[in-house]
Amino acid sequence: MSLAVPLPVALSLLLAILAPRAVRRTAPALAARGLVVAAVVTSGAYAACLLMLASTLMEDLLPLSTSDGGAGPIAAVAAVLLAWGLWRLAGDLAVRRGMRRRLRGVGRPRGSGLVVAEWDEPHALAVPGRPGHVLVTTGMLRALDAGERRAMLAHERAHLTRHHDRLVSWAAAAAAFDPFLASVRDEVAHQAERWADEEAAAVVGDRALVARAVTRAALAGHPPSPATSGTGGSGILHRVRALSHPAPDSERGIVLLLVLIAVAVAEVAVVAAAWLA
């Protein structure tokens, strides 16, 4: 029983470490979906384990309990993690809902599916809804030429038509409850960007054009004196590089994700068996 607490944490960490490597050469549409399923199943396993462990605490508190208090500190830790996770989950849902409402309220996309904001800061984002629209600033539009604008609009429309907001929301909810999954959430967001890049490249028929649009948009608002130097690691360079190669189509990474999902399910079974025993 005492092994039951480290198990879900270990699985979450394993997923967090392996997931980005696993999907490195996987097609982004498959990678994003696979990662979301793995994250949701893993956080579900984490929740189930915490719930079972915490419930032994309740038994201890009952005067008629037959258990003689072996669960003590482990159950307490599980209960705290459970409460903390639920608190974070509620916060994440509230922030996202509020954000979506405020972005929808920015303007109505009459006739064009596009809302333009007169603002120098370069932003372009997809505002989900029925049917959803694109919100873009003049700062972004003026940083791009006509072809790049077309690539950017196709990218944002891909987010809408492929419902990337749902994928990212599921991953964010999983990571809110199970904080060890934060890097998986970020990888899902990155894969959604890659996916939209690939869709935009298919629409405009020019991978280099999309790469140029991404690069120029990233540099917009960054004056030539770079105080921004760092060690790389951002998704932008990866996106640009990926666009300079043919579209990826490997399905290898998904096998590893499937194994992790199976492990998560098995883990719940193990803890459940220990709990019922």
Binding site: M99, A124, T228
Partner: peptide, 27 residues
């Protein structure tokens, strides 16, 4: 952070010079 997806997120942690060099090559 919760904002849906932006076309590009901030350049924090990226070498802007490397991106500029990339842009020149892409053109």
């Amino acid at each position: 952070r919760a904002a849906l997806r932006q076309f590009v997120t901030s350049l924090r942690g990226v070498d802007a010079d490397r991106l500029r060099a990339l842009l020149v090559r892409l053109r």
